[in-house]
Design a protein around this nucleic acid. Structure first.
Lengths: 327, 327
DNA sequence: CTGAAAGCGCTAACAA
DNA sequence: TTGTTAGCGCTTTCAG
């Protein structure tokens, strides 16, 4: 491997001259040309490790994602990347693979890497993780979950539930079915449902509840069972994928959407546009989430963790498509 | 920041003792306990930069992806990650954002980072990039494109075209329509089409051709135009997303799939399972691609770039669903 | 404009 | 088992 020292020797100058040449470039025209040539020929690349050893902190920002193939996460990443690229910040992305222990390991890995800050897509937070986050010298920003006294960025899930219920009410529906998930997922399992119930009941609508899982295929199977039995004219699925499963099942059962049944999801995934009719949903601002978090990271990098809000909530909005209609 | 030196002073031992304690742990019980305590209290984390400065090469592997939100890429990443995690190799993922210049920059960034190897998801390769790859001291493995004399990993696109055509023939179709993309994309635009034509014509079938783009929505618009006019009984779309667009349009036009028209895609994306009927497609082994490439990287890391094949082709296979039927 | 020298945090001989 | 010493590749005073 060719080093700065090699270059210096070849050019018969000192290491510091080469270093200067590489950085601010304040060297004589003659040495510049000489070095230009040598660097060119040798294909010399300064060692980033050594550089940041001196700097004592890298200009990187660590990101811990739950999986590589989560569409929502990836949209958030695009948003993070857009800001990071503009600010010339290098991202260090690590995969927790939905594993709490791996999440913890990744945090300490990034800390050893001396990144400037960590963005953590948290799904589950146990006491140990909470402690690790709180005791970290390095700022850790949470996406999708909130933790006391840590900067957290979340979506308006309760609001989203209210919005969908209001939409159903506005379309004249009074017999509603909410197809949800386990309450151990607070955002999806609790908040969306609660928002939905609150508005529905306030308007005198009846709400059935059925619990399913997150997968499209499981929801499809479930729907084949409950669709023939339900009296509901409007089904609110707790996620777009669940909605797709139900949509598939209703096609199978020849139940026409939206003529016989209205159906909606949550998320605003492009997959809702892949079925016909497209599915009414609540758009979650994933890309914007990424931008927002990353902008905050930039601020933290410059000013430290003082004066930053604990909680930032991003607004959601209703996206009406063909799957919901007046009764 | 607390360093190894700080710990050493606090414990009244030498730096090397602390280093030994941290690594192989061959220190006396007494010093171990003393150090345990101090490390605990200070929350000391060894500086990864300094460690790999010594090692002169990091144990990282760089990955350059085209975008964060490409489902196929993300499945490949999961495969890469599974092997990397097992082998305790840290991945350094960088986003080229579909930008050729950014791809080149990322290569040189990773080279400065002194990663052990680079995995490059190449979409487009111009001469400059080809040169950069060829002149790199650091091994660069290509995924999805091939380049002379560089280890390349590709899918059997030509085969895939043949497989789909054979399927259409087997189902008795003789009037075929291939909905493809620009030939500037070699794998998707040329190979899949060529394989399809070769088998179709050998069996005396007629093939129409229509060019569209990669997006679902554009293909949907296109399909609204061409579906009423075509005489074909079987449509082979060059990607699953295009197939979905056509599927949506046929639903809109009340053309029944597969009764009036058979439809297939390429890729094996889960999105083909999101519409009803599910779409017949050719499964591409994305996850396996990741495993395969990463295993090769491990080999390269150990044995250098000698004796490794230039080209590895991964097999595809037909996935028959409800969207295709006998005529 | 240039060079000498010190040091970033850590590891690895080599002695003791 | 421990400490001493040198050095990884680079940056940064401080003199010249």
């Amino acid at each position: 491997m060719v080093t700065l020292n090699d270059i210096a020797k070849m050019a018969n100058v000192s290491k510091s001259t080469v270093s200067r040449y590489l950085n601010n470039g304040s060297v004589s025209q003659k040495t510049k040309e000489k070095l230009d040539k040598i660097v060119q020929e040798t294909g010399y690349q300064p060692n980033a490790m050594a550089q940041s050893l001196k700097a004592t902190k890298s200009s990187m920002v660590g990101v811990i994602i739950p999986r590589y193939d989560s569409p929502s996460t990836n949209q958030v990443l695009q948003g993070i990347d857009s800001v990071a690229y503009e600010k010339d910040i290098q991202l260090m992305i690590t995969n927790a693979n939905l594993d709490l222990e791996r999440t913890k390991k990744n945090i300490s890995l990034l800390q050893r890497q001396k990144v400037g800050a960590i963005i953590l897509f948290a799904t589950e937070i146990d006491d140990e993780l909470a402690n690790q986050i709180k005791s970290s010298k390095m700022p850790i920003l949470l996406v999708g979950q909130k933790l006391e006294n840590s900067p957290s960025f979340i979506y308006q899930d309760y609001e989203a539930g209210k919005i969908i219920a209001q939409h159903a009410i506005d379309k004249g529906h009074r017999k509603l079915l909410f197809v949800g998930v386990t309450e151990s997922d607070y955002a999806v399992g609790v908040l969306r449902k609660k928002g939905f119930y609150d508005v529905a009941e306030r308007n005198g609508a009846s709400v059935e509840f059925i619990e399913t899982g997150f997968s499209r295929s499981y929801s499809y199977e479930k729907a084949l069972e409950f669709l023939p039995k339900t009296a509901a004219t409007y089904i609110a699925a707790a996620t777009d994928h669940i909605a797709i499963g139900i949509s598939n099942a209703s096609a199978e059962l020849k139940i026409s959407i939206p003529d016989e049944l209205s159906l909606s999801g949550f998320g605003g995934y492009s997959v809702t546009q892949n079925v016909f009719p497209h599915i009414t949903t609540v758009n979650y601002p994933f890309y914007k989430m990424g931008e927002t978090v990353m902008k905050k990271v930039v601020q933290v990098l410059n000013q430290g963790t003082e004066n930053i809000d604990d909680l930032t909530e991003l607004q959601v909005d209703l996206n009406i498509q063909g799957s919901t209609n007046k009764i």
